[in-house]
C-alpha cells in the first residue's frame, strides 16, 4: 500500500517486535497485572495489521496465511471448552481448574493460563481474519482497477 515511504517502513520494522513482546507480556502477566487474553490478542493482531497496512495485505498473508487463521479461530474456543471437559474428566465441575495441578492453587493457575491462551488465539485470529477480508478486498479492487486501465 505505502511501498515508497522508507521512514514508515523502518519505524514499523522497529516497532513490530516491541508490540509482539508487549502482547506476550500482557498475555502471560495477566495474572499479576492488568490485561489478559483478550487485550493481548488484540495487540498481537494489531502488530500484524500494522505490517499489512505498510507492506500490503499480501505480504501479511505470507507471514500469517489465511488458512491457518481459519483453523485458529475455532481452535481457541476448543482450547477453552476442552479445558472444561478435561476438568470434568478429572472429576471436578465444568471449568473448575483445581484438579489440573498437583494442588488446587497450581491447578487454578494453570487453568487460567490455558484458558487465556484460548481467548488469545480466537481473538487475535478473528481480528486478523476480518482485517484480511476488508484489506484484501481493497487490494483486489486496486488490482482490478489497474487491469481495467
Amino acid at each position: 500500500m505505502m511501498r515508497d515511504t522508507i521512514i514508515l517502513r523502518v519505524v514499523v520494522k522497529l516497532l513490530l517486535p516491541v508490540i509482539l513482546i508487549f502482547a506476550l507480556y500482557v498475555q502471560f502477566h495477566g495474572d499479576y497485572g492488568p490485561g489478559g487474553g483478550f487485550q493481548a490478542g488484540v495487540a498481537a493482531a494489531a502488530a500484524v495489521i500494522l505490517y499489512g497496512l505498510v507492506f500490503g495485505v499480501s505480504a501479511a498473508r505470507k507471514v500469517v496465511p489465511q488458512g491457518i487463521l481459519l483453523a485458529l479461530i475455532p481452535l481457541g474456543v476448543l482450547i477453552f471448552a476442552g479445558t472444561g471437559i478435561l476438568s470434568l474428566l478429572l472429576g471436578a465441575n465444568y471449568l473448575d481448574y483445581s484438579p489440573l495441578g498437583s494442588y488446587p492453587k497450581a491447578g487454578q493457575h494453570l487453568g487460567i493460563l490455558i484458558v487465556e491462551v484460548g481467548v488469545f488465539v480466537t481473538v487475535s485470529s478473528t481480528m486478523l481474519a476480518i482485517f484480511y477480508a476488508f484489506g484484501g478486498r481493497a487490494e483486489d479492487a486496486l488490482v482490478s482497477e489497474e487491469e481495467n486501465e
Binding site: D31, G36, G84, I112, V119, V123, T126, I130
Partner: peptide
C-alpha cells in the same frame, strides 16, 4: 486461585462460563 489480579481471577476462574460464552461470541461474530 493464586492470582493477585482479581479481575483475571473473576474472568477466567469464577466466571469461566461467561468468558467461554464471550469467546464463543467472538468466534461466531468473526
Amino acid at each position: 486461585t493464586g492470582s493477585p489480579n482479581v479481575v483475571t481471577a473473576v474472568l477466567a476462574s469464577y466466571r469461566g462460563y461467561d468468558t467461554l460464552g464471550e469467546t464463543t461470541v467472538i468466534f461466531t461474530g468473526g
